[in-house]
């Protein structure tokens, strides 16, 4: 077994995974059952506004008096247009 090669490739793998690793804090709240349960309801709210879910990127999940709030960045994309991002919040009690 070529240990040096494997260690180099492990480092390379982690380097290639940097964008995913940086998103870890955003998805950690999904470890909690109530967040997982609320997420389909929140997505339904976004759908009710006519949004394309592929244009929506979840930024964070917070808890406040409105309940469990999901914060999204929405950016409409079409051919020849890439709209400025807008921040959306959808909450679920």
């Amino acid at each position: 077994m070529n240990a040096r090669l494997l260690l180099s490739l492990l480092a390379l793998s982690l380097a290639l995974s940097t964008p995913s690793l940086m998103r870890l804090p955003q998805v950690l709240p999904f470890l909690e059952a109530d967040v997982r349960a609320a997420s389909p309801l929140v997505l339904k709210k976004l759908r009710n506004d006519g949004l394309w879910l592929v244009n929506v990127d979840m930024q964070s999940v917070t808890r406040d008096e409105r309940g469990l709030c999901f914060h999204f960045e929405h950016r409409y994309t079409g051919r020849g247009r890439n709209d400025a991002p807008e921040l959306l919040t959808a909450c679920e009690q």
């Binding site: 494997l6 998103r23 997420s39």
Partner: peptide
Amino acid sequence: DTVTWIIILACIPFVLYVATHPG
């Protein structure tokens, strides 16, 4: 077996991508 470990290591970016993209 080096080849087996190479395949497994090459799947790490995939695993982390899927884990961080709930879609």
